[in-house]
């Protein structure tokens, strides 16, 4: 499991921007996903050059009680991933440094080193204490339990 930094005093000096507009009725998660894709688009270009297509590098999923963020980070080891969560803000930094294996000559180099840094605002507040991050099969998965106020609930309708 990855280390998750929760100390907001060490918030990096960047201006977190609102990835998501203010909630508007009817705004669905497919919109959110498009937003997320747009944000990660530049990263994908630097990562994959002309090869991979957009769309599947980063995903935000709402499982009801949790928000789940997944990001493709092939070849990144967990010591090179840093995650900071504060309220409804999340900051992710990951680096991949590639060098040719020793004694080999390169014939083709499409894979590239990258430094991925992104801050974004989640649509609801999350419980950072119980957040879990896992790096497996080249994918970072961050599971963020929604704060109690943001949990889905059913309202009983009383007959008049």
């Amino acid at each position: 499991m990855l280390n998750i930094y929760r100390n907001t005093n060490e918030w990096p000096s960047f201006v977190p921007f609102a990835l998501f507009d203010l909630p508007t009725p009817g705004r669905s998660f497919s919109n959110l996903r498009q937003d997320l894709d747009r944000v990660f688009g530049t990263y994908e270009q630097s990562l994959n050059g002309p090869y991979a297509q957009t769309g599947e590098n980063a995903q935000l999923r709402d499982s009801g009680s949790d928000l789940v963020v997944t990001i493709d980070l092939p070849g990144v080891s967990k010591k090179d991933v840093e995650l900071t969560i504060s309220g409804d803000n999340i900051f992710i930094r990951a680096t991949r440094t590639l060098s040719p294996p020793e004694g080999y000559t390169a014939h083709r180099r499409e894979r590239s080193s990258f430094k991925f840094e992104q801050a974004f605002q989640l649509p609801v507040a999350v419980e950072s204490k119980t957040a879990v991050a896992n790096l497996q099969d080249g994918v970072l998965t961050v599971t963020l339990p929604k704060s109690p106020n943001a949990q889905p609930k059913q309202i009983a309708v009383k007959a008049g």
């Binding site: 994959n48 050059g49 991979a52 493709d72 092939p74 040719p100 083709r108 499409e110 099969d137």
Partner: peptide
């Protein structure tokens, strides 16, 4: 959705080495 993953190809005296980024693939 078909994707061409990025690939590196290296060679030494004994072998060719092909590396490909295949995130989420088990």
């Amino acid at each position: 959705q078909e994707i061409m993953p990025p690939v590196d190809i290296y060679e030494n005296d004994h072998e060719l080495l092909v590396l490909a980024d295949l995130p989420r693939v088990t």
